[in-house]
């Protein structure tokens, strides 16, 4: 059974005023337990509005959100349950650190779950280790951490809730390439070990193409949904809605346009290199 199901989800901001704006428009989507999904789309396409419904921060103007088949807005208890099961890390989460110590900040969620002290302690330590945050900083103020450490502490606070679904909005924005790589590797390892569902919101195609499924939004609707090779085959459509192809897919497109007979569905460097080397010596160039 699907873990998350959106049925005809619509959200209209400032409904009934002259500023009325439909941010998401009748979206239906199911996500299975354990999937890794990238949600991509231009600024203002409705991505952030959509994810704010998954843990009941926004109430739909129309349609429903089901978690394990249950409407999350059915009761106060179901809303609370959704907040614990769906962990959302918003953009630049480091601005939301507020406790006196790093430990207290990461422990904030588990404390709200009314867990006992040893369990809170275990979860904080595990979450910090997962994101690569050294226990030596636990007693320091979050404000004393570097930018990268703050980002990790904020993500650890959500991991410590041990959610079934982890939603991250541009988790690597502003990080240097090594920091980006390290954080992504850690998040995917967390997914593998815990079997948790991951929904990554991004417009970085080199991040999106690591997920098994891509969901593309434009103007409040889902316009493409499939495996990366399927979605990236729609290159014209992606470019026209303001997105990009991953560089290997773009280079493959340019090579095809110049007459090279490359197979379809190439979007990683490995496959592109392999395909080019396979053509070498076959006299495959244009003649």
């Amino acid at each position: 059974m699907s873990l998350i199901e959106l049925r005809g989800l619509t959200h209209i901001y400032s409904q009934g005023t002259p500023f009325e704006k439909t941010a998401i428009d009748g979206i239906s989507l199911t996500i299975d337990a354990g999937q890794t999904v990238a949600l991509i789309g231009h600024t203002g396409s409705g991505k952030s509005t959509l994810i704010s419904h998954l843990n009941a921060l926004l109430k739909p103007s129309g349609g429903t959100v089901l978690l394990d088949g249950q409407d999350i807005f059915a009761s106060k208890a179901s809303i609370r349950a959704a907040r614990f099961r769906v962990g959302v890390v918003f953009q630049y989460p480091e601005y939301q650190l507020f406790e006196e110590t790093v430990f207290a900040d990461i422990a904030y969620g588990p404390k709200n779950l009314k867990l006992d002290e040893p369990e809170i302690d275990r979860r904080v330590r595990e979450a910090a280790a997962f994101v690569g945050l050294d226990a030596g900083v636990f007693d320091r103020s979050p404000l004393e951490l570097s930018g990268g450490q703050k980002r990790r502490a904020a993500i650890a606070g959500v991991l410590a809730m041990e959610p079934d679904v982890l939603v991250l909005d541009e988790p690597t924005a502003g990080l240097d390439p090594a920091g980006r790589e390290d954080l992504l590797a850690r998040l995917f390892r967390w997914h593998e070990i815990r079997g948790a569902t991951i929904l990554l919101v991004t417009h970085d195609m080199s991040i999106a193409n690591r997920c098994e499924r891509l969901v593309v939004m434009a103007e409040g609707k889902i316009v493409l949904d499939g495996a990366p090779e399927e979605v990236f085959a729609h290159d014209g459509q992606l470019l026209s809605i303001g997105l990009d192809l991953p560089a290997p897919a773009h280079i493959a497109k340019l090579l095809r346009e110049r007459g090279l007979d490359l197979p379809a569905g190439i979007y990683t460097l490995d496959r592109l290199a392999e395909a080019i080397l396979a053509l070498r010596g076959k006299g495959a160039g244009p003649c």
Binding site: A178, S206, L269, A273
Partner: peptide, 17 residues
């Protein structure tokens, strides 16, 4: 802690072959 553009990564790979 940096990387190379993907074009360079591809060319390096192809040249190694």
């Amino acid at each position: 802690r940096l990387t190379v553009p993907e074009t360079t990564a591809l060319i390096t790979r192809l040249n190694a072959a």
